[in-house]
Structures are given as C-alpha cells and as structure tokens.
C-alpha cells in the first residue's frame, strides 16, 4: 500500500506502455514491408542510385530474416537514426522546401520542426482546458435549469461537430480580408520574435483547440453531474458543508478523474489535428512535414513520424494514468478495468 503500491502501479503501467509501443513498432515495420515493391525502392524511391540501395541493404541487413531486420531497424531507431528523407520535389505540396531537407537526416528535420508543433499543441491544450473545464463545471452545477441543459447540449454537439478545418478556413477568410491584428501565416519562431510568433499562432491554436474545448466541457459537465449524484455529496450536505465547500473539496477533485483521462484523448487529437492547423496557417511544423511526406510517398519520413507520434501519445497516456492514480487512489488496487 501507499507509496510502494504506487511505485508498483507505475512500473506496471510503464511496462504496459512499452509493450504497446513494441506492438506499434511491429505494426509499422510490417506495414512498410507490405507496401508493394522492394524495401529499397519504397524507402529511397525508384530512381535512387545503386550505391544508396547497397548502403541501405547493408544497414538493415535486408538479406537477413525479417525478425533480425526488425531488430536492427528498431535498434537504429532507438539510437536516433530514423533514416534519410527522400526528395521528389515535383510531387511536393505547398512550399515544402525540398532543397533544404534534401538528404537531411529525418531526426534533424523533426528536431527543427518540433518546437512549432509543441507550441501549437500546448497553446491549443491550454485554451481547451481554460475554456472547456469552467464551461463544463458551470453547465454541470446549473444543470437543474432546462435552458442550461438544452443549450449546453446544443453547444457541445456543435463544438464537437464543427470540423477544425471548416472553422480554420473561416478564420483564414475573415482574418485575411479584414485586418484584425492576428496574422494568417507568417510564422516566426518564438525565440526570434515572441510577439509576431503569438500573432501568427493564436489562430491555428484556436482552430486546433475547438474540439478539445467541446470535449472538455462535455466531459467535465457529465463528471460533475455524476459526482453530484454520489452519496458522499449528500453526506457532505448533511454535515452542513456549503455549496462552495462541496464544489471545492469534493466535486472538483472527483470530477477531475474523467477529465484527466480525456486530456490524453485530446492530446491524441492534437497530434493529428496539428497537421490540419499547420497546413491552413502555414506553420512549418511536424504534422505538415509528415503530411507532405505522405503526399510524396516518402515512407521513411512517414514511418518515423508515425512512430514519434505514437511514442508521444503513449507517453501522454502514461502520464494521464499516473496522474489519475494520484487523484483517484482506488485505481491502484482495482488495476485496469
């Protein structure tokens, strides 16, 4: 029990996360090998010079049995070697600067682009939390009113229903036609010019946050309603606690449990959705890069991007699980349901 129990729980969750990631890596490895054509042609493109093909064959031991190839590939990946990006500029979309990326190690390109995506995800998550959770609490606490019930249901259906790219397109239109202080495109790294950076990032962040906001609002509302119906809330009322005390001491803490779980869901959405926001607002991030790679059939980048995203997602889920167990100590004993 106590801290030891928590430690054991954490180790179990960690092991399970690693297991999941191994599954993901096998899936990705298999998928790439299922693509028609030889591995070298898939990874390097059909026009690659023979020397490059030979290098790749040697690196991954392509003449060895698949399990050995997988091990080599995985070890290289874990060592930070994600391969080399392919470049066929005539098929690229947008202003994907192929000249710069040409033959650059994928990991360097990821590192260069990660800050924009991470900033975008953090801003979107912050907006979703700061707007969605208070809205949900308010809706949950005032659910006695029919009007509040109806309108919160309609708003959440709308918020979860409006695709981010539709909202983003609307933003692009409104903010390109009218000068409202926020820029569409024109990304500048945060370290260079924070103000210009924020001007450029607010719109993509709002676009990306809308789904999470609705998700948080809805989850929080349902959670508050569920907690309010719990016997310990009635017990607190019977002990003469005031509504404020009850909300602060009991409702928020207990309602936080499903909200933490949903944060992980939202994070997953952010990882995928970032591609849309980056594309719409020309933010040179990770998602856009992987998207362009899909268009170009640059499987080396796609495979690396998928793995990195899966690692990020599983890591976030693991954190959510660990946080969950702190808020709701019952989790540890119950294990996973």
């Amino acid at each position: 029990m106590g801290y030891l129990g928590y430690l054991r729980f954490a180790m179990e969750r960690l092991a399970s996360a690693i297991l999941t990631l191994l599954g993901v890596s096998i899936l990705v490895f298999t998928a790439i090998h299922l693509i028609p054509g030889s591995y070298e042609a898939v990874m390097l493109g059909p026009q690659a010079p023979e020397a490059a093909r030979e290098r790749l064959r040697e690196k991954y031991g392509l003449d060895d049995p698949l399990p050995q190839q997988y091990m080599r590939w995985l070890l290289a990946f874990l060592g930070g070697d994600m391969g080399i990006a392919l470049c066929r500029s005539q098929q690229s979309i947008g202003q994907q600067a192929c000249e710069n990326a040409d033959q650059a190690p994928i990991i360097a390109e990821f590192a260069r682009r990660a800050p924009a995506t991470i900033q975008l995800a953090f801003m979107a998550a912050a907006i979703a939390n700061l707007v969605g959770i208070p809205l949900g609490i308010l809706a949950g606490l005032s659910a006695g009113s029919r009007t509040v019930r109806g309108s919160s249901r309609a708003i959440s259906a709308l918020g979860m229903g409006i695709p981010s790219f539709v909202l983003g397109t609307l933003f692009v239109y409104v903010f390109s036609v009218h000068d409202l202080g926020l820029t569409v495109g024109g990304y500048v790294p945060l370290s260079e010019d924070p103000e210009a950076n924020l001007r450029a990032m607010v719109l993509p962040a709002i676009t990306l946050s809308i789904f999470g906001t609705a998700l948080f609002a809805r989850t929080t509302r349902d959670a508050v309603l569920t907690v309010l119906a719990e016997p310990f809330i009635m017990a607190a009322v019977a002990r003469g606690e005031s509504p404020r005390q009850i909300v602060r001491r009991h409702v928020l803490r207990n309602a936080a449990i499903p909200v933490v779980t949903v944060s992980a869901v939202n994070m997953g959405y952010l990882l995928g959705g970032a591609a849309i926001a980056e594309l719409l607002f020309s933010v040179p991030g990770f998602g856009w890069y992987v998207l362009a790679a899909i268009h170009k059939r640059d499987y080396a980048v796609v495979q690396a991007g998928v793995l990195v995203a899966a690692v990020a997602f599983v890591a976030v889920n693991l954190l959510a699980d660990l946080a969950y167990a702190i808020i709701d100590p019952r989790t540890i004993r119950r294990g996973r349901g």
């Binding site: 016997p231 019977a238 002990r239 003469g240 606690e241 709701d328 100590p329």
Partner: peptide, 26 residues
C-alpha cells in the same frame, strides 16, 4: 445558512453504505 449551521452543529447523519458516504479521493 442557518440550515447549514444547524446541520453542522446539531445533526449527525449516519448512512447505509459507509464507503460511499466518504469522499473516495480524500
């Protein structure tokens, strides 16, 4: 507010299911 202090100081409730009458997170 009078009702609250009445509940707090004069009444003591004991419910059927003790585990669910306690806040699980505290």
């Amino acid at each position: 507010s009078e009702m609250r202090s009445f509940r707090r100081d004069e009444l003591g409730f004991i419910f059927q299911n003790p585990v669910s009458a306690l806040d699980p997170t505290m």
